[in-house]
Each structure stands twice: as C-alpha cells, then as structure tokens.
Write a protein that binds this DNA or RNA. Structure first.
Lengths: 256, 256
DNA sequence: CAGGGGTGTTCCAATGAGTGGCACAATTCG
DNA sequence: CGAATTGTGCCACTCATTGGAACACCCCTG
C-alpha cells in the first residue's frame, strides 16, 4: 500500500530564495549559459521547480533567456551589484589610481576585498598581451596564497586567521603546503613591512606586491597588488609605488 | 462575527522572489546602505516580511549587514553578476581596447548595451579630474539622448524604435524635446555614417562620438563612445579612432 | 525621568504560493 | 524510425510564507 502511495511529498520545505540563488550560483566562468536541465542538476532543484523559478528570475531581470532556450545571467544583476559598497563602490574611487599604477608599471593591477575566509577580486587591469590571466573579476581566491590575500589576512581578526591556519594551506601550482608557522611568520612580516610579497612559480614565474587600503577607522578594507613576471623587475622596487597609491586611495575614501 | 474576525489576510499572494528583488532594488546610488524600515517602505513590503526576507538574502550573501544594523548590497551579487555575458563578459574583452582609446584621447570612454528601451552602462573610464561624471557603471540612460543610446537605438528592431518614439523624448539638461521626426532623421544618419554624435550643452558643453560593436552575426550588441568637452577638439576627429576600436573589439568578440 | 516617536525584533494562526512527480510535445540522435 | 533527451503543462497536497500586534529597545525632547 504504502508503496503505491502517491506520496506527493512537496516535502523538505526549503526556503524559496535559497533555491533561486542556487540556480544563479550554478553558472560559472566556464558556463556562462546553461540549459534548464543543467541548472536543475547543478543546483539540485527538480526540473519543474527549476523552470518555474527560473522564469520568475527572468521576469525580475536576474536571468535572461536566449533564443535557443538557454539561460544567462541578466543585466539587472549587474545593475544592483554595482551598488555594493565593497564592490563597485570601492572600485569607483580606486580605479583612477589603479590606472596610474597600471600605466606607471605596465603590469597587472589587482583590487580585492575579503569575504569570509576568501578574497574576492573586485577589479583587475591586465597588462596587454602579458601572461595569462590568473583570476577573473568577481572570482574568489585563497587568502594564504596570493599577495592581496596575505595582505587582507594579515590584518584580519585573529579568530579568522586561526580558522584559515586550521584549513587548507596548499599552494596550488606547486604541490606543496604551507605550515601554519610559516604562514604566521609571513603575516607578521606583512604587518611589519606594510606590504605583502608573494611569488608563484608555476605557469610562468610571477611575483606580486600588495598593500592594504584603509577605511575611515584605519581598518583594512581592501588590498591592491601589482603582479609582474618575476624576472622583469626587482619586486622591491614596486614597493613605494604600491604603498603610495594605496595611501592615496585610503585618503580618497575618507574624503569621498 | 465576520467583523470580529482576525482576518489575518496573508493575502495578496505575491511571488516571493518579486518581493526579494524589490528589496534589492530599493538601493540606489545615493543610498548604498539602508535601514530595515527604509527598505520596507521603499519596496512596499511590510516590515516583518522585509526583515524575514532580508535575513534570507543575507544568508545567501546578496545582502550584508553592517554593525549598525543597516543593510548593504553584498559581494555575492557581484560575483554572480560578473558572469553576465552582456555585462562583465563583454567588458572583459572590450576593456583593453577601451584603455587604448582612453589614453589615446585622454577623454571619458563609455561602454553600454541595450536592455529593453534603455541603455545600461557596463563600463566607464573617466578622464582624470575632467568634467563631472554623468552616468555610473550599472546605471541606466535613455536611448534617445546619448551617443551610445542613439547608436544602440539606430540598430534596434523597428518595433522598439516606434515604442521609443511614442515615449518621452525630452532632453534633460536643456528643457526641450525631440520630435519623432527629428529622431528618425538622426537615426538614419547614424546608420549611414556608422557613428552617432550627440551633444549636451548643460553642466558643461560635452560631445560624444559613439560607434557600434557587432556580434557574431553582425548584430549590434553594444556601443562605445568617447565623451569630450565640446570645446576641446573637433568631434569629427574622433570618428576614426572610435570606429577602429569598435571594429577591433567586434573582431575580438568573434574570436573569443 | 516620564513620555513620545523611532528603531529592530519575536510571535503566531491562517492560508495560498510553492511543491514535484507525472505525462506530453518537440527535438536531436543513432 | 524508434530511443533518448529536451522543455513544458498539469494539479492535488501542504508547509513555508504571511503581516498585524505586541515587545524591547534606543534616542531625543520637554
């Protein structure tokens, strides 16, 4: 009997919004457009529900639908996201200074903020034709393995530092891992020097020099780094430029 | 009886997601952080519901909450929005070329796409210290009144052109309006010349020269313009630069 | 320091929006 | 031309969603 039961469990009863965001989250850099079923399986939302919700999202402008039926992230989201103080808000005042740094050095320039135990790349100016792009705007990167990451981590609450130490400290390109003590030493150096220097040998040897941007109450709210081929210049030579620009941005934020 | 009824109407029965997006939409350039009640009244969602939904949005990362209890648009939204093909996707390939144009001319450079009967500003490089900023990234602007707008409108489906003609054709700074015929003539010229030129006398006389970016099937998917103080240079002199850059981007998109 | 207006917050009964399995149509594929 | 996979419509069941009322707080101001 029970077996034949129609059951019809509309069950688990999961917050509506969660599902919607899971659908949105199923997109990725490699999959900018997805079919309904792809979204459905990736976000683990039944097909019928996925369709219904996706349609509502289209109505809101959060998604757009192509002629072939596939879904794409919509412009409306950009519109709203551009109001995020820690995103485009920050970017707006920082960008001109980043450009200065960009033309002065001719290298990649990165702007990132911390979100939980990761760094989010808010803006990136790429050296023309230079080495492959490592991270994309809107993407996340580990705190322990990048210049901006180290910078943000060094000035984060110690509870978070502990949490990161306890986590995964592997360095991706090379196949080794940091020990918590190595990291602790590095962070101390970052705090002392006011800049973070990180190197990465892999695809091509790159070195990044990062400095923090301070908010109104002298708390670290973001970090900027210049990423150069290690062979190109002495990274130390970049230190004055990066710190100077970061101080300028910090001042501009206060004024803004 | 009925009178004493607690009623308790959970009534209108409005799609959940709509409310959530109305809450998000209540933010604006001038109000990057809002209190619960502000959001509640702006989006016309009862306070209790607003709180419940806002909390869920915080859980999803779409909103963040400051120490003082105010809400702000969250980073997660930037993360997702950065996957919008017509937003950051387009931006990613266009930005280097825009920079070229920026340093070559020393003027504002704008990148916009059409969304319905408006243009959305996807990227903006500002001339340092130059005239006040007219539009912000993620903001919307009318199709009939700006260089990029005219460019996008000229190549839009005629049904949309008609719709715009029937709508509001006022020019904001100066207090006059276009007639549909004036606009029609302008659009014809834009299609003929391959560039759109728009002037705006108000805060300070500015002229913008815009050209279209073409997609894989030669449809217009975006437009780029250079905005200069009218007195500075003969706008016509910018035409080759703008068109050349737009063709380069179109080609890069195809290759991409 | 009682009082008033302003927050954000918790509570709760009533109900309709959301649910997802199933069946169907239109493709594409082998 | 079946077989598999797509997007879609249907619909009875029910639980997440609903919003008014009451509460706990600040801030002011009189």
């Amino acid at each position: 009997m029970a077996a034949a039961q129609r059951a019809h469990r509309p069950p688990v009863g999961e917050p509506v919004l969660d599902r919607a965001f899971r659908l949105l989250a199923s997109f990725g850099p490699a999959d900018r457009s997805l079919s309904l079923t792809s979204m459905s399986v990736r976000s683990d939302v039944p097909k019928s529900s996925a369709l219904r919700i996706a349609r509502q999202l289209v109505a809101c402008g959060a998604l757009e639908r192509l002629e072939d039926g596939d879904f794409v992230v919509g412009l409306r989201l950009l519109e709203i996201a551009s109001l995020a103080p820690r995103g485009h808000g920050l970017r707006e005042t920082a960008l001109p200074y980043m450009e200065d740094l960009h033309v002065a050095t001719g290298q990649h320039v990165l702007l990132a903020v911390r979100d939980g135990s990761e760094a989010v790349l808010v803006e990136r100016l790429s050296a023309r034709g230079a080495a492959r792009v490592l991270y994309r705007v809107g993407g996340r990167m580990p705190l322990h393995a990048t210049g901006v990451g180290l910078c943000l981590l060094a000035h984060a609450p110690s509870s978070l530092q502990d949490h990161v130490m306890a986590g995964d400290l592997s360095l991706h390109p090379e196949n080794r891992s940091l020990t918590p003590n190595q990291l602790r030493t590095t962070l101390a150096a970052v705090r002392r020097d006011g800049v973070a220097v990180a190197s990465r040998p892999d695809p091509s040897p790159m070195t990044s020099v990062a400095a923090p941007i301070l908010g109104p109450r002298d708390e670290v709210i973001a970090a900027i780094s210049v990423v150069t081929p290690s062979a190109d210049v002495d990274p130390i030579a970049l230190r004055p430029a990066v710190t100077a620009v970061c101080r300028a941005i910090s001042r501009a934020m206060r004024a803004g």
